[in-house]
Simulated scan of single mutants.
Amino acid sequence: MTDISVSATEFQTRAGLYIEQSGKSPVFITKHRRPARVLIDIEEYERLKARDTRRAYAVEDLPGEWVEALKSADYGKADPKLDSLMK
């Protein structure tokens, strides 16, 4: 089955239909003829989410080996022009 594209207004009018159809293929919801959202099946969402291994860390939460790697890294010679940006 091919992907479905529908305006936000049409989606609001027939949400039940498009929720049902999103179980078979993604439903692209547009606003002003531009893609705005994608409605996908929950199983597909969970599958995609499981593949996302990105994580943000606060400085105090960095793993110890990362802290040591950052401390011992050679960042090369600093450009003196950058000092003027720090003032």
Rank of each mutant, 00 (worst) to 15 (best):
D83G: 13
D61K: 00
Q21K: 13
T53N: 10
P80T: 03
A8R: 13
A58T: 11
T13Y: 06
K77S: 14
R47A: 02
I19M: 08
K71F: 15
E68Q: 14
A50T: 06
E44H: 08
W66S: 10
Y18L: 09
P80N: 01
G76C: 06
K87R: 06
F11H: 00
P26V: 05
R14V: 02
K81P: 03
D83L: 14
K87L: 08
S84A: 14
K81C: 06
L62C: 03
D83H: 09
R55Y: 09
T9C: 03
E10Q: 07
S84T: 09
A78F: 11
K71Y: 12
L82W: 02
T9H: 10
L70N: 01
G23Q: 12
R54G: 15
A15T: 02
E65R: 13
D61F: 03
I29M: 13
S7I: 07
G16M: 02
K49W: 02
A50R: 13
T53S: 13
Y75Q: 01
K49I: 04
A50S: 04
R54H: 14
V67C: 00
S7M: 12
Q21A: 13
I19R: 05
F28K: 12
L70W: 04
L85C: 04
A15S: 10
L48Q: 03
E44Q: 11
M86T: 14
W66T: 15
R47L: 08
K49E: 05
R54P: 08
T2V: 06
E60K: 14
E20C: 07
Y57G: 03
D74G: 02
I19N: 07
P63I: 03
Q12E: 08
I4N: 07
D41A: 04
S22Y: 03
I29A: 04
